[in-house]
Design a binder for these strands. Structure first.
Lengths: 197, 197
DNA sequence: GGGGTCATGTAATAGGTTACATGATTCT
DNA sequence: AGAATCATGTAACCTATTACATGACCCC
């Protein structure tokens, strides 16, 4: 509840799409897919209709017309209202200028790692390290391919960010593995498991 | 739906707490707070009772006894079942060994940044950079203080991870700001806004 | 012309957050 | 003794995901 009437990032994406031109929900879905937004924004078809409805109730979008082609269900075309335009701009400014507290799964896992035995943890971390390395390579390859296809680098900034995060995590994990192997690290941790069956 | 019957990270934390000893929900909440888990796991009191119920239905925990002290509401003490013990271990292994796809808000923002004018974006990013720097400093100071109080470094791994991510983002943002300032960067972006009112 | 898959939604269900309640304890 | 805070939950309300439907189009 960032105090905004609608706070789901998918809603922000919808506002951004309608900033280009009015369209109906299915088209939004198609564009999001074509532009690979699934990689950076979590959603599914159900949530798309949901947020469009939320935006409608909030007055940020309005139904512009309802057309029916043949026997297919009616498609409602939505357009940005003035309030929606303002919200898009203001919301984007907030998202760019202010970091949002995140709760990555791995942070939770780290904070609970005590329940695993140290040696086991080290093994699992090695597996993770391998997976991360693969992901880094995959992202690098994909962005290189996309740019060779002529896509402007501006449209790949989110992938460069992803890469930065992945790489930082890779370094962290590699370092943690070495740490755990050192005998003087995590005395309490070892002791806790010594007393267990 | 990682195909697990209960998938909320808070549930993992609850299992981990019950691995230490049986306890009632309110005590879980108190321990989570005392140990600063709020920083790494998103939850509120409502969700605590919710996940305990989910775990109960899934058979991972069982009500051990219900005590009443004075006129206070009854407190139900829960304990791990064998299935819960197995789930905790298996789930932890998965969380540590396998990266989970994340959707940070900033990644969404980057992928929609086109709706802002380049100069505006650069300014907002500078604000973000300052905020990130403050956060980095704050985390460094807090962990240093905690260690000086005698807390073992093992218990601060999630903070070191946080630091790694924050720092990577800082570097990324600083670099992006410079990029945007270069005149040959983001031609399409500039053009898109040239045609707008 | 029958079997996929595209197009287009709605409805049912589960998940999660906020608001509401209320006795006990402690502080001043 | 009144105010603040702790202890302890339940209920109401959103939000989000999954399941269900169904006509059109395309491929073999």
């Amino acid at each position: 509840m960032g105090s905004r009437k609608v706070s789901n990032p998918l809603a922000l994406a919808v506002l951004a799409l309608l900033f280009e031109r009015p369209m109906h929900p299915y088209e939004m879905g198609r564009l999001l897919r074509e532009r690979d937004k699934e990689r950076s924004i979590r959603y599914n078809r159900g949530s798309l209709y949901m947020v469009v409805n939320q935006l409608l109730r909030a007055g940020f979008v309005a139904a512009q017309e309802t057309v029916r082609e043949g026997q297919r269900p009616e498609r409602t075309v939505y357009a940005l209202t003035d309030a929606g335009h303002a919200e898009l701009h203001d919301w984007m400014r907030a998202e760019v200028s202010t970091p949002h507290q995140e709760f990555p799964r791995f942070m939770a896992a780290l904070s609970l790692m005590g329940v695993l035995r140290p040696a086991e943890a080290a093994e699992l971390l090695a597996t993770r390290l391998a997976a991360l390395t693969e992901q880094v390579d995959a992202v690098r390859a994909e962005t290189r391919a996309a740019m060779e296809h002529g896509l402007d680098r501006v449209f790949l900034m989110e992938e460069e960010y992803r890469l930065a995060l992945l790489d930082a995590e890779r370094a962290f994990v590699a370092n943690l593995i070495e740490l755990i192997k050192q005998p003087d690290f995590g005395q309490v941790w070892h002791e806790f498991h010594q007393e267990r069956p």
